[in-house]
Amino acid sequence: MSTAVKADNLEKRYGTKKEVTHALKGVSFEVERGELFGIIGPDGAGKTSLFRILTTLLVPEGGQAQVDGYDVVEDYREIRKRVGYMPGRFSLYQDLTVEENLKFFATIFHTTVGENYDLIKDIYEQIEPFKDRKAGKLSGGMKQKLALSCALIHRPSVLFLDEPTTGVDAVSRKEFWEMLRKLKEQGITILVSTPYMDEASLCDRVALIQTGEIMSINTPEGIIRDFENPLVAVKADNMFRLLKDLQSFPGLFDSYAFGEYHHAVLQKENQQQELQAYLQEQQHESLELQQIKPDVEDCFIALMKTDS
């Protein structure tokens, strides 16, 4: 398999001399052809800047990048012909109908809706009953499907999706990832960025990005495998006091609130009993304690901790 996207030490700064925001600090990664690659990081990590560079909307200040074998600075014209880009914000013509939008994008890519209909069929069929409705009047989920159809209409070899599931309900999110799976089967390389850690497990490989730097690139399983410390979920009646007490436990590496439980990362194996005894000493009522498997979010938090 060859490389579809290659980024090498990409740099981007915003702002004037006085106040410079370093959006990307030397980002490098490679995406294989036909891969579903996730870029995962919180807001402001540099995901959108990275996507805008790869889709030739932004010129990087340093480093190089190739998409489908073409340089993003030199051969931007070629890249524009063969990538699909779906920005985080809905940006189709709100005053044109669903069908007109699709036709419009097909035409400016010098193709027709019919030519690549098989590719978007599954997605477009769901919004076809509303094809005479103006795009601005669609619901959030339908807008997203239309945007995806428009980004796919010219059969791109690489598809860039910038936070496609932000602000979308849980059912639509699930559906959306299902669609991406199917597209991947058609051989399209997909780069998707998301702030939701739970979506990482749906990608083939993920890059965890934080403040303009990539902390780790691996398969979701690999990232979890790299998490070496034992992880314990703790629960008690007084959760606030519990967190404070956890932090004063000598054998602790890190602890943080995690939904219903607090997660405690321990320094060594077999410290669980020790911790239980310690917490009982502090007289916590209805204490629950169990060893759990880490997920990507735990890994992300751990990586942030080691970095800083």
């Binding site: 889709t55 014209r77 012909k81 189709l92 400016i108």
Partner: peptide, 13 residues
């Protein structure tokens, strides 16, 4: 403002 400009810009237009 709406963002369609950016969408247009990634096309070979």
């Amino acid at each position: 403002e709406v963002g369609t400009m950016e969408q247009i810009n990634v096309t070979p237009i």
